[in-house]
Design a protein around this nucleic acid. Structure first.
Length: 710
DNA sequence: GTGCCTCGAGTTCC
DNA sequence: CTCGAGGCAC
């Protein structure tokens, strides 16, 4: 009986099967509690899946033995699917950062210059503490709370409505609000509540939390909302998402409106005029930091006038009208035990510091990035000394901080504690993984392995990139799995095409897969189904997935939109030669593609080995063409627009942003391809050229009238 | 040629 | 999140 757990599920007799089902039911129940309720799993996901499958297999053989508390009847098994996804109707963006007074002045300067205002024009901002918790979007329809979602990646978060309802600061219903109102704010835990919770957890033998933020995050993400209800979470409202009618004219009065509706708003929120007042408010909050009773990590400034906020708009990931002034990072000293080298997808050799674990800002840090060769030597990319020119050596006593409160870095070295035998770090000149020469191009900061596809480290990283979220995103085939497959000689997946031939390649594949830990027939079938589903895939994802240097998600979109379908794209890459020819010029003419990116693309398609690998992949796929996004109803969609002369009612940057939002392409020079020239006073050569070419020309008012109709 | 701005690549820990 | 580099405007 002792080895029951090891015995093949198909060979158990009836008594053994009954005992084994009981054991598995108990094990899985405990694992569930540990995972969900205590946030401290004691078995791996793979072990969990294996136990579940073993249970299902035995039940299939002895249906009569199926228990009333059978784990196969229980829902919510897969931890990652615990919460439903919610797509935010208005994106939840992050904020840009300011680290010192100069950054704050620069922020103010950027706001003014975008709006075309001088340094003396009045400009009012709000300033409020930046709460260190997790942001939440609350959706109210007709005054009733209908949905609460975490920020997630900004576009999509998790539905935690049941848990949010247990938080006292979050009203279930509100009176006098717009029909649709999304309130945004921060869920946090106070210092006192955090300490009491950890004490309680210790008494119960449960897991304690490293800091209030983790405690708040862990509590909000409980599957059982009764547990969340016992956790003392709080909420400050500071923003909004979708609203059916405007809340107010200014940020400050909108916050007042939220307070009037029954939300907690932070009492240290105030309006301030200009950078000096912003900085003064920051210092006032910094002085109170220790006595607030909850964690804050800085001060947030927002342009107060909502009409100006709208004009300022957004950059790719952050609003132009707000920034976060962060408190200086916490520092800690520890020993540097070793320096390891990692090899990236593009062959970049990145040094990583292995540290004696140390707590920095409530988190235990054991690794820190060392960037590159120069950084270790004590110089930045311009050859300027950093850390007072002190190099970093194995054995050193080093000061660590978390840049942006996230990435561990080394700030300083204590030379007095340097061991006598410490030697300067010798950066490897060959790849630690494949032994190929590692070369640093002149003017480049990184040293790269020249092994290309023959380098196992690069091949694995390329595969990870291939299955990543913005690329193929195959369900059940993440970074960990492809790495395991790569190294499993019985099921080799050495390049992307191998993923798609996995099933067909070998009739025994399923049998082989089953030998892997935690895999059964069902998981294999699921995997193949997920892979097959991804054979139909959009062109932009394919281009990004190829992992060509300098071609990221954004560039891949631009390129896909330009060529439209794979055949056209492939023909263009094959035909183009770096430096000249019509195909090369066409590539360079794509907005956002320059010579470096173009060379990288074209040479990849001309390298025999790379090309063969791409061809093998494409043969397995059904690549969907992409169309330029239709900006319906926009009078300037797809048009090439040039702004020239002095613009009086908007700045150049503003005009460009607006035009692009409406689907127009903004160019700097007038050519036969130009559709429209917007000329302000003082327009010179460009207006003249437009006239010669017969391009339509309008003034600023004409432009505003045109887009006003949009 | 210089100076933004944005993107790409690499990074850690939960 | 940060840094470096590419792309592009001035």
């Amino acid at each position: 009986m002792a080895d029951l757990a090891r015995k093949d599920a198909d060979k158990l007799d009836e008594d053994e099967a009954r005992a084994e089902l009981a054991r598995l039911a108990d094990l899985l129940a405990k694992a569930n509690t540990a995972y969900h309720a205590e946030d401290a799993p004691f078995i791996s996901d793979a072990e969990y899946d294996a136990a579940k499958q073993r249970n299902a297999r035995i039940e299939a053989r002895f249906p009569g033995l199926k228990r009333e508390d059978s784990p196969s009847e229980q829902v919510g098994a897969a931890p990652s699917e615990a919460f439903a996804k919610v797509r935010h109707r208005v994106k939840m963006l992050s904020l840009g950062n300011a680290f010192d007074d100069d950054d704050v002045r620069e922020f103010d300067g950027r706001v003014r210059s975008f709006l075309g205002l001088g340094p003396d024009a009045p400009m009012t901002y709000t300033a409020e503490p930046k709460i260190d918790g997790l942001s939440l979007n609350l959706r109210y329809e007709n005054g009733l709370l209908v949905e609460a979602a975490t920020r997630g990646d900004g576009a999509e978060g998790e539905n935690v409505t049941a848990n949010a309802r247990t938080i006292d600061d979050i009203p279930q219903r509100i009176d006098g609000a717009p029909d649709v109102l999304e309130v945004r704010g921060e869920v946090y835990m106070s210092h006192a509540d955090f300490a009491a919770l950890n004490e309680r957890q210790t008494e119960r033998g449960g897991k304690t939390f490293a800091n209030p933020r983790n405690a708040a995050a862990g509590s909000l993400r409980q599957l059982d909302s009764r547990i969340t209800a016992e956790r003392p979470l709080r909420f400050f409202a500071y923003a909004w998402g979708e609203v059916s009618e405007p809340l107010a004219d200014t940020q400050m009065s909108a916050i007042g409106r939220l307070a009037a509706l029954g939300f907690s708003t932070n009492p240290l929120t105030a309006t301030v005029d200009g950078p000096d007042a912003m900085i003064a408010h920051y210092e006032m909050i910094a002085e109170q930091r220790a006595t607030l009773g909850y964690d804050i990590d800085g001060v947030v400034y927002k342009v107060n006038d909502l009409a100006l906020q709208e004009r300022l708009g957004f950059r790719s990931t952050t609003p132009r009208w707000a920034t976060a002034h962060k408190f200086p990072a916490e520092l800690a000293w520890t020993w540097l035990d070793a320096i390891d080298i990692q090899v990236g997808r593009t062959g970049a050799l990145s040094p990583v510091a292995r540290l004696t674990p140390v707590t920095v800002g409530g988190v235990v840090v054991s690794n820190a990035t060392l960037h590159n060769e120069d950084y270790i030597a004590g110089r930045d990319s311009n050859g300027q000394e950093i850390r007072g020119g002190k190099d970093i050596r194995v054995g050193d006593w080093v000061q660590v901080y978390r840049a942006g409160d996230v990435i561990p870095k080394i700030a300083d070295v204590d030379l007095d504690k340097r061991p006598g035998d410490a030697v300067p770090y010798a950066f490897p000149e060959t790849c630690p993984d494949c032994g190929s020469e590692a070369i640093r191009e002149p003017g480049d900061a990184v040293r790269r392995c020249t092994g290309g596809l023959i380098c196992p480290a690069q091949a694995v990283e390329k595969l990870k990139h291939f299955v990543s979220r913005a690329a193929f995103d195959i369900e059940g085939l993440g970074a960990k799995q492809v790495e395991a497959f790569y190294h499993d000689e019985s099921l080799p997946v050495k390049e992307p095409a191998d993923i798609f031939t996995l099933q067909a390649r070998d009739a025994e594949t399923i049998a082989k897969l089953k030998n892997r830990d935690g895999w059964g027939e069902k998981s294999a079938a699921n995997l193949f189904a997920a892979i097959d589903e991804r054979r139909r895939i959009e062109l932009n994802r394919v281009i990004f997935a190829l992992g060509i240097r300098h071609v990221g998600e954004n560039a891949a979109n631009l390129i896909a939109r330009h060529y439209g379908d794979w055949a056209t794209f492939e023909a263009a890459m094959t035909e183009a030669t770096p430096g000249d020819g019509a195909a090369w010029d066409e590539l360079l003419n794509i907005d956002g593609v320059g010579a470096v990116m173009a060379t990288s693309l074209v040479t990849t398609f001309h390298q025999e080995r790379e090309r063969a690998s791409i061809d093998r992949l494409v043969a397995e796929l059904d690549i969907q063409p992409v169309e330029a996004p239709s900006t319906e109803g926009s009078p300037v969609a797809g048009k090439i627009v040039v702004f020239t002369g002095t613009l009086e009612k908007m700045t150049r940057a503003e005009a460009k942003a607006t035009a692009e939002r409406l689907g127009a392409k903004v160019s700097g020079s007038v050519s036969a391809k130009t559709d429209l020239v917007v000329a302000g006073p003082g327009a010179g050569s460009k207006a003249k050229k437009a006239e010669e070419l017969g391009v339509e020309m309008i003034d600023e008012d004409g432009w505003l009238a045109l887009i006003g109709e949009a």
